[in-house]
Design a protein around this nucleic acid. Sequence first.
DNA 1: CGTATAATTGAGGGATATCAAAACCGGTGG
DNA 2: CCACCGGTTTTGATATCCCTCAATTATACG
Lengths: 240, 240
Amino acid sequence: MLNIINAGIDARAGPLEHKLQSFAPLQTADLEAVRACHDDLRTTPAGMDVAPPGAGPDVVRLVVSGWAARARVLRDGRRQLVQIFLPGDLIGLRLLPGSSVIALTPVRTADAAPLATALKARNGAHARLRVAWERLEALRQQQLLDHLVRLGRLSAYERTANLILDLMDRHRRAGLSDGTRMPWPLTQEMVADVLGLSIVHVNRTLQQLRREELIVLRAGQLIVPDRVRLAQAACWEPAH
Amino acid sequence: MLNIINAGIDARAGPLEHKLQSFAPLQTADLEAVRACHDDLRTTPAGMDVAPPGAGPDVVRLVVSGWAARARVLRDGRRQLVQIFLPGDLIGLRLLPGSSVIALTPVRTADAAPLATALKARNGAHARLRVAWERLEALRQQQLLDHLVRLGRLSAYERTANLILDLMDRHRRAGLSDGTRMPWPLTQEMVADVLGLSIVHVNRTLQQLRREELIVLRAGQLIVPDRVRLAQAACWEPAH
DNA sequence: CGTATAATTGAGGGATATCAAAACCGGTGG
DNA sequence: CCACCGGTTTTGATATCCCTCAATTATACG
């Protein structure tokens, strides 16, 4: 409530705002609804669970900064990260059973309720917002299917390159990258758990990508010097 | 329009109806909306694309009988079936780019528009229907994540057993099985494309499951003699 | 400086893919 | 009834990818 004004403090557009705008131009009322999502701001330290202590089933949280992931852990300890959340992504905490959302880095999240209520508005308000939202949801579904193909049909080498391009594109759409560089806070263990590989093999695969200069990894930043070549290695399908 | 009455001809409850009822008891108005989905009934022969010729982006079709799957095909011919549709499932044909929905067997589908409009009703009508629908959607999401874990972290043996249990449970929830037997129309090539394995390896894995009498495969029917043992082999997490 | 975490390297084995051929099976036509 | 046919299943042999185990080095952090 208090911070429609405060929200303006941040010079650059928020990543969620940027993503939505890339699908459909928003109106001022829409923008206000998005920017109002700064309530109940909380920081989750790396490795911890993002769900608030007494989280209801229908909570939706907006990632303001940092990375998180939805994790499924098997009884014998095997772990699969099924989805990565970047700044500007929304985390629906409803479908809990069996999976949890953990912070990969320190993560700041906010209550996304204002956005949710705007989307549920009965009157015709927020039409543009709703369109952009729909497209964004469709894209999210696509990304899940992309991940399925990655795990099912790509080699370790292709998988790794593919994931990098995926994350890069998402950063760009959120206005957080120009498409050639982005932050890279993931340990090789995290990458392994995303890609369904062993740590050791991830290490060797990343080395190969660096040796071939498809990626440069330095100081927590990842650089893609030649997107075309990386896309080839990644078995990347442009389209969506 | 014409067939609220005709719908009653079918003695048993439709599979979609059965699934919804398993989540929340429906009211007569809800049931009518579900049963009204018998318009534009069309049959797709095995191997063909399920999307109607000039399909708009927002078409939703209900599977009345037969199996279908959403497929992604890479340029080099590798194929991944990312989602299997059984009778009672709804196929959203909107997020087309890159993926198509193909019939694994001859498939009869109907236009699900009546259901869609009922769910969009402004007034308070169809409250129960909406609840059941939400739960069903949550389950569908879960199944996608299950599939991700299957591909990412399970061995070929576990994957296969796991898929069988998944399909069995879905049949049961749709009122199409008692949980011990179900139709099995899949060729080993299809199984391979679902599980991200080679045909040859699927063959050997199925042989092993049969040798150990975890499954019996005969005359297009699959029987699970001992669910508990199969669940163990499948690394199955009960919960959801 | 010392400790913990992460990255790297090497050796060896197991799981799964690939290639090629043979057996099986339901349908079709002579 | 038989021969044939395409598609499916099965089998064997071999190659490769990726995993596991174990140890070493680098990096971050107090």
